[in-house]
Computed example of a mutant assay.
Amino acid sequence: MARDVQITIDCADPAALAAFWAEALGYRLQDPPEGFESWEQALDAMGVPPENRNDASAVLDPEGSGPRVFFQRVPEGKQAKNRMHLDVRAAPGVEDEARMAALESEAERLVSLGATRLERHEPAPPLGSGHIVMTDPEGNEFCLD
C-alpha cells in the first residue's frame, strides 16, 4: 500500500523558510484551522504564547498531488551537508541548451528570493542532463533539475 509523504525541514525561522519554499515550489502556505480567519486568531484561541508562534509552518501543493512540506524550529543550526535533498524539477521535458537556459532563469528567480547558487553541472550524456546546485535561505542544499 502506498503511503502519503510529508517532507520535514528543521530550521531557525519556519515562517520565512515556508514562504521561500512556497514560492520556489509553486505551493501555498497552509490555511489556518477551520473556523479561523488567520493563524494569529487560531494560535490565540489555542493559547500559544507569542514566543512559540513561529515554531512551525507548512506549505501545500495547491493541486493536492505533491507532498506537504513542514518546517519546524530547532535550536541548533545546520551542521553539515544534507544527507537528503530536494530536486526541484524546473525544466521537465526540456533538453540541451534550452534546458540549461530554463534552469539558469529559475536559479536567478530563486536567488532573488534568498537562495544561493553553488555550482552548475553541465550535461553529461547519456545519463546526465545537467543541473544547478543551490541552497535555500538557511543553507539547505537542493538541485534545480
Rank of each mutant, 00 (worst) to 15 (best):
C143G: 00
R3C: 00
R120P: 02
R68M: 15
P125D: 04
P67K: 05
E138S: 08
P67S: 06
R109Q: 11
M84N: 13
Q30G: 08
E119I: 10
V111D: 10
A2G: 09
D145Y: 08
L60N: 12
A56N: 07
L60S: 07
E23H: 08
E95Q: 10
P123W: 02
G35W: 07
E138N: 03
D136P: 02
A58P: 00
P14E: 03
V88E: 05
N140C: 05
F71D: 01
D55C: 07
V59Y: 01
H85F: 13
L86S: 01
A19N: 09
A90V: 12
R53Y: 10
S38G: 06
H131I: 01
D96S: 06
L110M: 05
L110C: 05
A80H: 13
G26Q: 06
A124C: 09
P126H: 13
A98K: 06
I132L: 05
L25V: 06
W21E: 09
G47H: 04
S57E: 10
P126I: 05
E106N: 11
R53G: 04
A19C: 03
D4R: 15
A90P: 00
E104Q: 09
E40G: 09
Y27I: 09
A19T: 11
P92F: 09
Y27G: 01
E97H: 11
D13N: 11
A24D: 08
A102S: 08
E104K: 13
I9A: 00
V5W: 03
D87K: 03
S112C: 05
E97N: 02
A124V: 11
V74E: 10
A56L: 11
R120W: 02
L118K: 15
E141A: 08
L86I: 14
V88M: 07
E108H: 10
Q79S: 12
L118H: 14
N82Y: 04
T116Y: 04
M84C: 13
G114T: 08
P137S: 09
E34S: 10
M84R: 12
A24G: 08
L118I: 11
A98Q: 12
R117L: 14
P75S: 12
D4G: 13
C143H: 06
V74Q: 08
R73K: 14
Q41I: 02
G114I: 00
L17N: 03
A115Q: 00
P137W: 00
G93T: 07
R120L: 12
D4T: 14
D145W: 03
P126G: 08
P137H: 09
F142W: 06
E95H: 09
C11K: 02
A115M: 02
L144V: 02
N52T: 01
N52I: 00
A91C: 04
T116M: 13
Q6I: 13
A2D: 10
D31F: 08
M1G: 15
E37Y: 06
R3V: 10
T116E: 15
A19E: 14
V5D: 03
E108C: 05
D31P: 11
